[in-house]
């Protein structure tokens, strides 16, 4: 049994790392680089990766793009991806993710959470592909999108391209604004609508990070 995730070495990306790069052992990578980047990882057998992306910027007009390719080409590779994309003002945020299962006994779990405020636009393409003749693979992807302004918009395309039958693969995507009953619940407890929306946003993001929202 490998060490728990908390014990994995953590690397914080700065944006200057050469790509493609091989992940040889268990690794946690945190990416909060407020610039466009293209990341490409390959894996040695048995390696595990937890990639946490928090993509946002203070710049009101910025265009931020993240391209992530994970090639699971060795057996017993496991990848977890938690991505939070936040847009506000006139920002354009996009994520292009491709997880390729090229070997047997590979596993991936992806959770993408996006929050679009003001006039921002968030675009997500998340592709899971599986090569021919691989066995015993699992791939699951969840993509949840929250729109917090009538002028904000979200485009999402979760793609499956499966060429082997011994793989369990699923994806789900939802897009919505905050539910009126959620807003009503908070407002009826004396919380203003602005703050109520912030609470809903923070709780939504917390689901992706697994943390509780701050007070």
């Amino acid at each position: 049994m490998s060490a728990s995730e908390e014990d994995w070495p953590t690397e914080v990306l700065h944006g200057g790392e050469p790509m493609p790069r091989n992940i040889a052992k268990n690794q946690r990578i945190v990416d909060a680089v407020p610039r466009s980047l293209a990341l490409h990882w390959t894996f040695s057998a048995g390696a595990k990766l937890k990639y946490v992306l928090d993509l946002r910027s203070q710049d009101r007009e910025v265009q931020l793009h993240r391209k992530v390719i994970c090639e699971l080409n060795a057996s017993d590779v496991s990848v977890q991806i938690y991505a939070i994309l936040r847009g506000n003002n006139h920002q354009r945020i996009s994520l292009d993710l491709h997880l390729h299962h090229g070997a047997s006994h590979t596993h991936s779990v992806t959770y993408i959470c996006t929050v679009a405020e003001d006039s921002s636009r968030i675009r997500t393409i998340a592709k899971i592909s599986a090569a021919e003749r691989i066995e015993c693979c699992d791939a699951h992807l969840q993509n949840r999108n929250l729109l917090l302004s009538p002028a904000a918009s979200v485009e999402t395309t979760p793609i499956l391209d499966i060429q082997s039958n011994d793989i369990r693969c699923s994806h789900g995507a939802t897009v919505s604004g905050p539910r009126p009953d959620e807003i009503f619940y908070l407002r009826s407890r004396g919380i203003s609508e602005v703050v109520a929306r912030q609470i809903i946003r923070d709780a939504f993001i917390a689901q992706a990070t697994g943390n509780q929202p701050n007070d």
Binding site: S149, S153, S170, H171, G172, V175, S176
Partner: peptide, 12 residues
């Protein structure tokens, strides 16, 4: 817009 709900799921 923020006033609609879209849900999608797929499994293979």
């Amino acid at each position: 817009n923020d006033r609609c709900i879209v849900e999608h799921e797929a499994a293979v």
